[in-house]
Structure formats: C-alpha cells, structure tokens
C-alpha cells in the first residue's frame, strides 16, 4: 500500500551554486560586521581576502571599513574617590594605632593633669619648703594584737586595772551623747577598758563585730599627731573631674563619674584578667538614691551602707 509522501517543490531546494556567496553580494550590514572584525584584527585569512576584494572593488566600502579603525574609546582620567578608605594597614600597625597610641595619649593627659592640678601644686610646695605646714589634728591609733572579736574569756581576778584613755574626739562624742548603739560611757568603767567605744567612735569596727567581753590585751592606745592634708578634698574633686572629663572625651557624652562606677570598673577589669566572679551591686531606695553597696565573691560577701559624704 502506498502512502502519500510530502516532497518539497524544486524551487525550495537550492542548487549547489546558490549556496556560495560572492563578495559583491554582501549586504551593508554583513559588510559592517566583517569590517568591524577586520578593524579588530579578528578575521581569518579567507575572510580577509574576501573583504579586501570587496574594498578593492568599491571605494565607498574601503572608506567605510577604514572608519571602524577610528572607533576606539580613550579613557578619561576619572579617579576613584574611595581609594584612601580601601587602603589597609598591616595588622601590627593597626594594633599599634588602636591600642598603644590612645594609651600613650591617655597617660600623657593624666600626667599633664597631675602636674598642673592641685597635686602638682602641692608637690611644688613641698619641694620649695620641704614640708607642708598646717594645723595638727589628733587621732587615735589602736594597736590591735589580735582580731577584736577573738577574745578569750578571762577570769575577773586576772584582769589588770588600767586607766581609761579617751581621745578628745571621743570625749566630745561622749559628752554629746553620740555614742553608737551598745556603747557604754567610758567614764562609767572603772579600771577596765572596753574596746567598743573607741573602735566604734573611730570607725574601725561595727557594733555587731565587736565582742562585748573585756579585752585586757588591748590596753595600749597611742596618740600621735599627723599632718592633715589641707588639699585632700580638693585633690579628690580634681581627680574626679579629670576622670569625668576623660570619660566624656572618649565616649562623647557627659557622664557623671562616682566612686561606685570606678570600683565597679575595677572589679570588672579584675574579673576579666583573672577570671574571677566578683560582683558589686548598688542598692537604691525608691527615690533612686543609693543606700548601700553589696559586694559578693566566693570568699567574701558584705553589705556596706553608703556614706553620703563620699563623693
């Protein structure tokens, strides 16, 4: 059985002669593409011969091909504006710039502040006079041979009678009735010295930590005169102002520096260096004023009320 077949007509089957393209038959678009390649030097041998034959036959096409040689872009002198920011420093130089130079500048600033501050003026005074003159202040120094609370009970007959010693400040406090809780008036003690009044009055101990027993070992209380520092408060204020100024210069903000902040910074630094776990917390009342400071570590913990006179 014969099936119908689709056969192309003769006019759709080009003869072999029509497959070849003669140079004169090149369209302008074909010629331009060849000329552009020729101007780039990208034509092969046979294509170059074909193009040259066309250019030889036509002057217009020769000029047209020649024009492609002049189509070349020349760069302008446009500079990259961000070049400086892309340049990197070596790691050593970067570390030097980031750590050593600020440290040196901070040290230099502190030295300048110390030299030109009250401490520097004081040093100049000492150097010129040899000593700082000022009114004497009497303080009591208690010689402690053993911890105050570590007292053995001693029978009454073995206690040696001693003369009670009172400092002027203690006498004044006693006369004004400013004795701490649990204190007895020294005048009422005959022949014995209690450690509580003196220790509490001088701020060396708290009432809870002082044993109520009589301590015969603590019998010597020396009075000595020391030279008070007239500019101590002034120096403290100066140092706090300097630290506050430096903190403001570094952070760019005005920040109030107090003792708690400094102590907390020191504890944080020690924790970072030694890997310890110490904590310092500030306890505030409802109005936001600090009332106590709590310190805790694995070895020691305590809570201390805030002294409002402390800067």
């Amino acid at each position: 059985m014969d099936f119908p077949r689709l056969t192309p007509p003769d006019d759709r089957m080009p003869s072999g002669r029509r497959l070849f393209r003669r140079p004169a038959e090149l369209t302008d678009e074909q010629f331009d593409l060849m000329a552009a390649a020729w101007a780039e030097g990208a034509l092969s041998g046979e294509a170059v011969e074909e193009l040259e034959s066309v250019m030889t036959a036509s002057t217009d096409r020769r000029d047209r091909a020649g024009s492609f040689r002049s189509i070349r872009l020349v760069p302008y002198n446009e500079n990259w504006p961000g070049m400086k920011s892309a340049v990197r420093l070596s790691p050593a130089l970067t570390a030097f710039r980031r750590s050593v130079i600020p440290t040196l500048l901070a040290v230099a600033a502190m030295v300048i502040m110390i030299i030109y501050g009250p401490a520097g003026a004081k040093l100049k005074t000492i150097n010129s006079r040899g000593a700082v003159n000022g009114p004497a202040m009497t303080v009591a120094e208690i010689q402690v041979y053993a911890p105050i609370i570590a007292v053995e009970r001693i029978p009454e007959p073995n206690i040696l009678p001693v003369r009670p010693v009172q400092t002027p400040a203690a006498e004044e406090n006693a006369s004004q009735g400013h004795l701490a809780e649990g204190m007895e008036k020294p005048a009422e003690i005959t022949g014995l010295v209690r450690v509580e009044p003196i220790a509490l009055a001088r701020g060396h101990a708290t009432a809870s930590s002082v044993a109520p027993e009589l301590i015969p070992a603590i019998i010597s209380v020396n009075i000595r005169d020391i030279q008070p520092d007239m500019t101590l408060q002034e120096e403290k204020n100066w140092m706090f102002r300097s630290i506050s100024f430096l903190a403001g210069a570094v952070t760019g903000k005005e920040k109030k520096i107090d003792g708690y902040m400094i102590a907390n910074g020191c504890i944080t630094g020690i924790n970072n260096v030694f890997g310890w776990d110490m904590e310092l917390d500030r306890i505030s009342n409802k109005s936001g004023e600090p009332v106590a400071v709590t310190f805790s570590s694995s070895l020691l913990s305590f809570t201390k009320p805030v002294n409002k006179t402390t800067p």
């Binding site: 678009e29 331009d32 593409l33 552009a36 390649a37 780039e40 990208a42 024009s67 492609f68 189509i71």
Partner: peptide, 10 residues
C-alpha cells in the same frame, strides 16, 4: 557583542 557594538557606534 564587540562587532555589533562597533557597528552601532559607527
């Protein structure tokens, strides 16, 4: 692309 670009520029 280059040859076509050159022709377009011309």
């Amino acid at each position: 692309y280059i040859f076509r670009g050159r022709v377009a520029l011309r």
